[in-house]
Write a protein that binds this DNA or RNA. Structure first.
Lengths: 340, 340
DNA sequence: GCTTGGCACTCTGAACGTGTGAGTGCCAGG
DNA sequence: CCTGGCACTCACACGTTCAGAGTGCCAAGC
């Protein structure tokens, strides 16, 4: 089939260009791949591919390089996810084994991902909004002052000291604690909030004051957006390998890496941990990053996407390898969150 | 005085080179500065300065650039700290005013510093080991389980859930809390540790078990080295402005910025917040960073250096400006820690 | 004893030509 | 539909040249 060969040519171009970083010509192509046809034939195919917008010439009489559209086709139809080597799998397992807490897991993942892909890695901390409540603790400090501790399914702990408008004896506090836990343990934060706001209504009017204050503090703790935005970044030194188009791409990249909000937008919506999302060049939300691509996926316990992790690199990157690494790390991390 | 003029020439060379990033020649020098002598004279002085190792020629028949030794002399004897503009002072004040907690103060400082100096900024979180204990809270969770909350003078909070070898009734807990606070509030962590370890001895033998466990947990919380090493980094996008010698310097720089231990070594020992330390090029501990300089100072409440902050940039940087910015930010931050 | 103008010298970096080679498009024949 | 051949096009590497900035040194002047 002619159409099949054209795709084979595109695949070969992408692979060679990614490997050599140089425009690839028809002759080099037949030399390095078993296409079974002559350079002239490949040239015809290339002309067609260029016509369709999958490849382009940096200047007349140079080889071809893939366009964003070409990479897109490559990623969608031409590449199969490269299985990781045994050594890589071992590296992942052993590095993540030793993690001691949530922060540590995230730190290690980001390093690992950067090392495996030789790109910049980004790992979002599990977001509050999607996680569930594991436990609420209410401890009296003084008669009109309690410490509120909120423990989430991700292991994150939020705490608040709350001043009450009236005193609460220990018995009341104990009752309240039981009630709170019964109401929201196991709920997602969004649902928990909904249940909490109607809780004061269950109390006698004269008792509502302290309860309402407590509930308000809890809701506030849960909706604390600052922890929502936390991300870890690693492997920035890999930016130095960008090579060509160095300064045009590196500056906006460094700027983006400091703006965590930007990074989160880059990573995109957390999807299930089984799907790896690839965003190529101009497909992303930022024009300055038109020469960079993002490979990301969601992760979380039980295949439920609590947060996102991924890598950012030049459009001319090794997509199969990156996708494999991202997927593998996401799976390992998810498993660890399952156990923890 | 001839000697004086030579120093003036060195100062002029440093200033011009920092401004233009290009080797400066004798003619340009007399044009741009009121030296009151002819280029030929300046040439003689330059020859002498080169002889003494303060300046050098990148290649024959080019202008001169300062050596590390030249910068050192400039910083030590020739520069006076540039006062910040009113606008800059206002920017500092207004930006740091709104900070809500310790983390926020650090985040804002790092941004501010990066913005003011247009270099990479580094702020170390106040270290535990030098801070003092503000309060200890012991709250019973169940009969044989308590939550330990340690609040430090820097605003940092450490917490542990401790399993006791025996039950403790509320009265005992209350007594223990009072005793603990009386023992270590206001103490530096090092001293607090010393006092804590002998505390169990004050109890009856049969009560020592739980106390010892609690004390051990507290000591462990205080000596937790992970928080010791925390640093915030900002303004990495300024690396893109390095210009010349880009790739030689940027790579080790990015690598260093990911290794917090390395950063801490770079910043060096925390000194009093009134002294600004400058480390130029090869004077630093890392050979790969021979073309970068560090301007740093300590900060903390009451002029006591709890931690360090500073900037890292190319040796060819604006030292007076950087020193002024670093000093100013350190002072403002110290003041805020005083109040908080 | 400094300072200075003059002068010859050096060397980089920009500008310019030139040529080579990789790569292309097209065409005619298989 | 494939293929070999052929003319054509450029980027890039290379050598050459040239101007300009800068230097060092010397002899004269203050």
């Amino acid at each position: 089939m002619v159409e099949d060969r054209k795709l084979a040519v595109l695949r070969a171009i992408v692979e060679d260009y990614v490997a050599t970083q140089e425009p690839v010509g028809s002759k080099a192509l037949v030399d390095r791949h078993q296409l079974g046809v002559s350079p002239a034939t490949v040239r015809n195919d290339m002309a067609a591919l260029e016509e369709e917008g999958f490849i382009t010439q940096p200047h007349t009489s140079a080889g071809r390089i893939p366009t964003d559209k070409g990479y897109r086709l490559f990623v969608d139809r031409l590449s199969q996810v490269k299985p990781l080597s045994a050594a890589e799998k071992r590296a992942i397992a052993s590095l993540l084994e030793g993690a001691i807490d949530l922060d540590d897991v995230v730190q290690r993942s980001v390093r690992l991902l950067a090392q495996l892909t030789r790109q910049v890695a980004i790992v979002q901390y599990p977001t509050l909004s999607r996680s569930t409540v594991r436990h609420v603790e209410v401890v009296p400090l003084t008669a009109a002052r309690v410490l509120l501790v909120l423990i989430l399914s991700t292991g994150r702990v939020e705490q608040r000291v709350v001043e009450l408008p009236a005193t609460l004896d220990d018995e009341r506090v104990a009752d309240l604690r039981t009630r709170l836990n019964r109401t929201i343990v196991g709920e997602r934060l969004a649902d928990a909030t909904a249940r909490l706001v109607v809780l004061p209504d269950e109390y006698e009017p004269e008792q509502r004051g302290p309860v309402a204050v407590l509930v308000a503090a809890l809701v506030e703790a849960m909706s604390d957006h600052r922890s929502d935005e936390r991300v870890a970044v690693g492997g920035t030194a890999n930016l130095a390998r960008f090579g060509d188009g160095f300064d045009v791409a590196i500056r906006p990249m460094l700027e983006a890496l400091e703006e965590h909000v930007v990074l989160l937008r880059l990573l995109g919506e957390a999807t299930s941990s089984s799907t790896v999302t690839v965003r190529i060049g101009h497909e992303g939300p930022y024009q300055e990053l038109a020469t960079t691509s993002v490979v990301a996926t969601g992760y979380g316990p039980g295949d439920e996407a609590l947060a996102t992790l991924g890598i950012v690199g030049p459009t001319r990157m090794d997509y199969p390898g990156s996708m494999a690494a991202v997927r593998a790390v996401a799976r390992y991390v998810s498993r660890i969150l399952d156990e923890g």
